[in-house]
Amino acid sequence: MKIKVTVIVQKEENWYVAKCIENNVASQGKTIEESIENLREALELYFEDETPEISDIPTFVTTMEVAL
């Protein structure tokens, strides 16, 4: 079985942190690709004993500016 998840990658100091929005599982790596691959492994372990809830509701991700 395969599912699609939404992932955000952010640079924090010398690491890239990849986080799954649907369940807050996160991992890190020295490169974007490494952080995503590490997150994939973390998610596979997370779902190993749990059946994911599959939602057909589309996710909309955007950025916005906030006046300070």
Rank of each mutant, 00 (worst) to 15 (best):
T6K: 05
T62P: 08
E48W: 00
Y46Q: 05
K30A: 12
Y16N: 01
D56Q: 12
Q28I: 01
E33Q: 10
V61G: 04
T51D: 11
K4L: 10
D49P: 02
E48T: 04
K30D: 12
L68H: 07
E37G: 05
Y46A: 08
L43H: 06
N38P: 03
E12F: 02
L45G: 14
K19G: 00
E53G: 03
R40V: 11
V61Q: 13
E13T: 07
E65R: 13
E53H: 06
K19N: 06
N14V: 00
D49H: 14
F60W: 06
I32N: 08
Y16K: 01
V61N: 10
I54W: 03
V17Y: 00
L68Y: 07
K30N: 12
E13K: 13
N23D: 04
L43R: 02
Y16G: 02
I36V: 15
L68W: 03
W15D: 09
E37Q: 15
S27H: 03
K11M: 04
E37C: 10
V25D: 05
K2N: 12
F60L: 15
I32P: 05
V25E: 05
D56W: 01
K11A: 06
E41K: 14
Y46V: 07
P52A: 12
V9P: 00
V9M: 09
T6Y: 05
A67V: 11
I8Q: 11
E37M: 11
F47E: 02
E50A: 10
E33P: 01
V61F: 09
T31W: 09
E44L: 10
E48N: 07
D56L: 13
P58C: 11
T51Y: 03
I32S: 08
N38G: 07
L45M: 13
E33W: 00
I3P: 14
Y46R: 05
E37Y: 06
E34L: 12
I36R: 06
T59Q: 15
T31H: 11
K11E: 10
E37K: 15
I54Q: 06
M1D: 11
F60V: 15
N24E: 13
P52V: 02
K4M: 08
A18N: 01
T59E: 09
V25M: 07
K2C: 02
W15I: 02
D49K: 13
L68I: 13
A26D: 02
I57C: 05
N23G: 03
I21Y: 06
E33T: 08
E12L: 05
E37V: 07
T62S: 15
N23C: 15
P52N: 09
K11P: 03
Q28N: 10
W15S: 11
I3S: 13
I3Y: 06
S55R: 07
N24F: 06
L45W: 05
I54R: 05
N14Q: 04
A18K: 01
I3Q: 09
M64V: 09
Y46D: 04
V17Q: 00
T59V: 15
A18Q: 00
V61D: 05
I36Q: 09
V9Q: 06
E12P: 00
L68V: 13
E48D: 12
